[in-house]
Design a protein around this nucleic acid. Structure first.
Lengths: 597, 597
DNA sequence: TTGTTGGCTAGGTGCCGACAA
DNA sequence: TTGTCGGCACCTAGCCAACAA
């Protein structure tokens, strides 16, 4: 538990400030409980032990974000290889592994937890060393008794040191080449050494260490009218080296030892073209070892990516045991703990619509995502399958007929939907769901209706965050009109921090002005875009201050759906897939659509 | 055989223009001769087949240089795994492989030859697919008869198309950011489309494809007073992307199809920090496959690096057979074909001093480098071991007593040698050699005498070519006095195209002015440096136009030797090894010695 | 309190002919 | 014939306060 965090990114930060993770690391105290019946942990089934462990526990947790929940040394856990594999495969270019003949639930003891950061990206991850625990499995088979554990699922909040720390999402100004980094006043006063305010322009040199221990030097100056804290010299080099774009966040942390540290929390899990062995390849390579090690009953490693949700495949035993003591049935109401940081306090409630194995052939009897559910709040697309331990029962089972979708009935110009599906009776909803499941479609609205109506294309070279209403974007690297935030472009070789969105419009593609765009990325790389006016076809202008984003049409084979409450559109394009979830056209570059640089 | 090559880099280009290689590629004509007794070539023991084959045969050969000699499809060859492994180990960070239980000579048929270029560096290499040929081996065992072959060792010169082509070593101006590329007139007229010389400043856009098929655009203009051909816009981008430094060479080639192509021949085989699988790791990975494949009698691949000499481990069968029909004995005179491009027409003759297995334990009976030799011309340090097929007998065996070393007797100030060993009687020479062999020392002069006397340090960040007498080098990126050619510096992250040779002189190191330096690199990364005056110790000046190169002393444990004819010094430092041959101190960076930016 | 902008300057890039080897 | 240089125009990086949200 990291306290004292000033998070400047949330306004209604009721519990965003709360870091509700259990802190644990390789040097955490607590005796290691190796199951007596297990062989000595000699052979660790992973080749990544050479990666150095990060230097600062607090910094690691700060970078990982408030949602990370790591098991601890000695914990009894249940490992779901099915979930592990699913996440490995969803993370991109990993080859599909064949059958592995593992049980769906492997009862394990946590031997060690090591904190790492990727060299190229500074992405944090943890290496959890597990070993199969036959005693635990036997206990489960004997009736699923609870296990005595050092801490419970919602265990004791560990008091750790309270470092002075702040986290700021980088603005366009922060990441522009035009200037430095604007430090929030409270943050500067809290984390940086005091300045001599008697001077006209007090300044000092700051030295901060990143997760790898690398030192970065910054000039910290207090100037301007009104006065403010700025990091100038050295900041740009840091932004360039770390390939930061606006929307990413930096963290500064002053430890009790007085050492200043800084970390990164990227807006999207950057697919930085690091040719070093990446997290995924490392993991994939490791899954073969996992299979091997489990069959040999030796230690194996699972890599937690705190921002990718892979932690779900390791469940505390007691939570697993408790969740399966409930009988789930269709119609049961539940709530789930938030998964996204941005989602604030919205309703993460839903109704269980069915119980079934997700892959009866390969993983018979598996509890992994064995519940099909329907969410009350459809603005946030989510898996329509959850595992029992992810949810919490909400009161008694609701009657089938009493359920009313909270979706309101609205239709907007520019969004012609042939069939108005803003309300659904449950029967239809369930039928619809079944169809969707069969096709692996997760939307609420059939897609063909949307064809050729609304689109926006973000080339891959446009990494993006928030575009506000009325914003216009220029093709010039320096200018855009207000209000603008966080629009950036990058090419593989050099980071271009301002959009260069002028490009060729391929023949046959409609051209749009961006009128009212709201977008954000969440952990699942999902993007929502609000409606745009379609313009009459006209030649492309490259005039400054009138930039366009060039769309490509939604074509046959794409699915699209609309969220009436917010007039959000989300759609799936045929341009490739980056996760096992839906892929949005603007997640991928469309050759010739937006020409970077 | 590539004809029509204008090579602008050699003055006495008697045979440098002559490309004496046999041209062969995967799409070369000629039937594949798979030995009847061999199993079908299903499993190719290499994972690198995914690398695309380069697009242009002529360009590949032009980049490979005139010395490459590739086997052809269907050829009968002898593969020496010992030599292969030796070269793999010498190429740097490859782990030493254990015993592999292969015979020293594997009789093979060449199934395929594919031409490649490394993605990061454009370095060319060839992939030779071999399969063991029991019939050939039997033929050898039955008395070593010659084999009928499509072409002999000094086979027929294949007439290929004669592309218009030129090769130019890049000057400091060519690689500077200050301007473009100066195209030799004949070359421009021969290779580029004609310009309209009636215009005041005729220009055109050139598009050239590199080995990977990537297109590069250049503005070609004919301007200046006097008029000359220049490549301006686009050139700098090319230099940057390819990380070219002065001393490297570019090739332009206009094919019969009218397509302009361009290639690179680097001055030194750049250890560009490409984190992509490099040639070596690819090869090393492959050697395990080689061992496997040979034992399973399936196809295996050997990778030829034309500029690294690894081709020596595949010998045409007839050459192997012919060379072993001779009985070698100490005293026998021989000549060897040149290995270096720069070496011109010097004497590559020597005397056989012994015949013995180089590694009797692991490779008993191997002919690989089974001859110990002494070279007449000691200016060029060479392996003192050669394989029989590398050399050619020169007349009758010379009498022991009649041999006189061609080394003349000279001693220079600044090179005090305690014992004058400029002439050696053979008895002493042989004894000396034996000592040297035992210690794996290849020099002619005992080393301790040289200690603390003469030295020059080229940091690794100084990639170098020719420094002429009287040259002074500035620390300023733009200025140096003439005559200067090809001095460049680079750091891993960014290519600095001018030297930044100002640095700290570590305590205790003598400081030298560079007075008279002659140096060159050959394929073996050997460097020769002529004498320098030692200066009285004095503080380091960083004044422009008076740059110094900072030496480090020859210390205990280094071997050094002197070539009296040329006043060359070569020495071996303890700073690491990059080849299995001697390493010179200035090949390696000495921490703090020369501080590259 | 802090995000964005214009003003300003220093320095790098790159095109040109002059000059000289 | 061609390598290098000074001149110069242009662009970018980066520091500053002004202004406004």
């Amino acid at each position: 538990m990291v306290c004292g965090l000033i998070d400047l990114n949330t306004v209604n930060d009721d519990d965003t400030d709360e870091v509700s993770t259990s802190s644990s690391s390789s040097n955490a105290s607590g005796s290691i409980t190796v199951p007596a019946s297990a062989p000595p942990p000699v052979s660790v089934g992973s080749g990544s032990d050479s990666t150095p462990v990060v230097c600062c526990l607090e910094l690691w947790h700060a970078c990982a974000g408030p949602l990370i929940s790591l098991p601890k040394k000695g914990n009894a856990v249940v490992y779901c290889p099915q979930g592990h594999l699913e996440q490995l495969q969803s993370s991109g270019d990993c080859p599909t592994s064949g059958d592995c003949n593992l049980p769906p639930h492997v009862f394990c003891c946590v031997l060690d937890v090591k904190l790492h950061a990727e060299a190229g990206t500074d992405d944090v991850y943890a290496q959890v060393s597990l070993i199969q625990d036959p005693q635990l499995e036997q206990k489960w088979r004997e009736g699923g008794r609870k296990v005595e554990s050092a801490e419970d699922d919602n265990g004791v909040t560990e008091k750790s040191t309270t470092p002075h720390m702040f986290c700021k999402t980088l603005t366009a100004s922060d990441t522009s080449t035009h200037g430095g980094f604007s430090v929030p006043r409270r943050a500067a006063e809290d984390c940086f050494p005091p300045l001599d305010y008697k001077q006209p322009r007090p300044s000092q040199e700051l030295i901060a260490k990143d997760l790898h221990g690398t030192e970065w030097k910054f000039r910290h100056i207090y100037r301007g009218q009104p006065r403010r804290h700025l990091l100038t010299t050295g900041w740009s080099a840091f932004v360039n080296k770390k390939k930061l774009v606006c929307g990413d966040a930096v963290l500064f942390l002053r430890g009790d030892d007085g050492v200043l540290r800084l970390g990164i929390r990227r807006a999207t899990q950057a697919k930085v073209a690091s040719s070093l062995p990446t997290f995924c390849s490392l993991q994939m390579n490791d899954f073969a070892n996992v299979v091997n090690s489990i069959s040999r009953r030796t230690v194996f490693n699972v890599y937690y990516n705190p921002r990718g949700g892979s932690s779900e495949c390791i469940v505390p035993y007691n939570r697993f045991q408790k969740s399966l003591s409930i009988t789930f049935s269709p119609g049961m109401r539940f709530k789930m703990r938030l998964e996204t940081e941005d989602s604030g306090d919205q309703r993460s409630t839903g109704t269980v619509s069915g119980v079934s194995d997700i892959d009866p052939a390969r993983w018979p009897g598996s509890k992994w995502r064995c519940l099909t559910v329907r969410w009350d709040n459809v603005e946030v697309p989510r898996q329509n399958r959850v595992s029992p331990w992810e949810i919490e029962r909400l009161g008694p089972v609701s009657e089938i007929g009493s359920f009313v979708s909270p979706i309101s009935k609205r239709t907007r110009t520019g969004f012609p939907v042939l069939k108005d599906r803003t309300t659904l009776d449950l029967g239809e909803s369930i039928r619809f769901h079944k169809v969707l499941q069969g096709q692996e479609i997760y939307g609420f609205y059939p897609s063909n209706n949307m064809r050729n109506q609304t689109s926006v294309g973000f080339g891959e070279s446009l990494r993006f965050n928030r575009v506000l209403q009325g914003q216009e974007i220029t093709s010039n690297g320096n200018l855009w009109s207000q209000p603008s935030r966080a629009f950036s472009s990058s090419s593989p070789s050099s980071v271009l921090r301002f959009p260069q969105a002028i490009g060729r419009v391929p023949d046959g593609y409609p051209v749009h002005y961006v009128d009212n765009v709201k977008a954000f990325n969440d952990q699942s790389r999902r993007v929502f875009v609000s409606p745009m006016k379609k313009l009459p076809e006209e030649p492309v202008s490259t005039a400054k201050n009138s930039c366009r984003l060039f769309g490509f049409s939604l074509t046959e084979g794409m699915e699209a759906s609309r969220c009436p409450n917010e007039d959000l559109v989300h759609a799936k394009g045929p341009l490739g897939s980056c996760t096992n979830e839906r892929v949005y056209p603007w997640c991928r570059s469309n050759d010739g659509c937006v020409q970077g640089l």
